[in-house]
């Protein structure tokens, strides 16, 4: 059984195919902290110290994804939001703005349908759909499989559009460089306080649908203040995916991060050569 495909392994589909069970490698140090506390006859009760984080397995997969990305200079961004924030539209516009400059691939996460992957493929970039079935989030093991199936290019960008959910994806490291949380102005101003884990886990917040502000009583400054209470270092960009407002600033942010990924790759190569 695959421990990290938690929400029903046999219900997870990558591009329509069941994500098969397989044996996992267990690193030698996996049981390093496990020892018999009170060794005795097998039929007698004994206490076993174990000290293992529940997400340790997911975190190992995430680390392995991160290592692969660093070796290939790939920037992976994990886009998270509630359903209906405009993630896919924003992603389509982002791809249009970047695709002549950089190779791009996309992993789409949804419980059902491959409609989002189809929207992404219509832009001409490769996209892979993960259907989580009943699952509420993507995990690092699913992403590792998806990365193997996509043909990722050196110094490219890999976007993950996570399952629309402001709760569960916060706790799962996928190996991404950054979580980018998208909040639309048609949602409540207090979302950062109501769902603080996600806003704390993110490094960038895109406040989307800002073209609708004239028709709403949404207080942008209050939202930004709430977001900064949860995460004082959260960078915030106001955007409108449909009107293009703020998109150049978002694109600049991405390009700067791509340069960082390339620098990390060079350092990696140097450390491998010197090692």
């Amino acid at each position: 059984m695959c421990a990290t495909c938690g929400c029903g392994t046999d219900q997870v589909h990558v591009d329509g195919k069941i994500l098969h069970h397989h044996d996992h490698d267990h690193p030698e140090d996996a049981h390093a902290h496990m020892h018999v506390h009170c060794a005795s006859d097998m039929n007698v009760s004994r206490r076993v110290k174990i000290e293992r984080a529940i997400l340790a397995q997911n975190d190992r997969y995430a680390q392995s994804n991160r290592q692969f990305l660093a070796e290939h200079g790939i920037l992976m961004l994990n886009l998270v939001s509630s359903p209906g924030s405009g993630k896919t539209t924003l992603l389509v516009e982002t791809i249009r703005a970047l695709q002549n400059a950089l190779p791009i691939a996309v992993i789409e996460g949804d419980q059902q349908t491959d409609q989002d992957a189809a929207r992404i493929r219509a832009t001409g970039v490769s996209a892979l759909q993960i259907n989580t079935g009943k699952g509420c989030h993507l995990d690092a093991h699913m992403i590792g499989h998806a990365m193997q199936q996509l043909t990722l290019q050196e110094n490219s960008i890999l976007f993950i559009e996570n399952v629309g959910n402001l709760v569960c994806p916060a706790g799962f490291d996928l190996g991404e460089a950054h979580k980018v949380v998208i909040l639309s102005v048609t949602e409540g101003e207090d979302k950062p306080l109501k769902y603080p884990d996600m806003f704390r886990a993110a490094d960038l917040m895109l406040l989307n649908k800002c073209d609708l502000l004239p028709y709403l009583s949404f207080d942008v400054n209050r939202t930004i203040e709430y977001a900064h209470r949860v995460n004082p270092s959260l960078h915030i960009i106001q955007v409108s995916a449909t009107q293009g407002t703020g998109i150049p600033e978002w694109i600049n942010w991405i390009r700067n991060e791509c340069r960082q990924a390339a620098i990390t790759q060079v350092k990696n190569v140097h450390s491998l050569q010197s090692g």
Binding site: A3, T4, C5, G6, C7, M34, I54, A56, Q57
Partner: peptide
Amino acid sequence: MHELSLAESMLQIIEDAAAEQ
């Protein structure tokens, strides 16, 4: 309901320990 996947991860840890010990 990510608690279900956390519970599955717990079981994996327990089963690994059972096989080991």
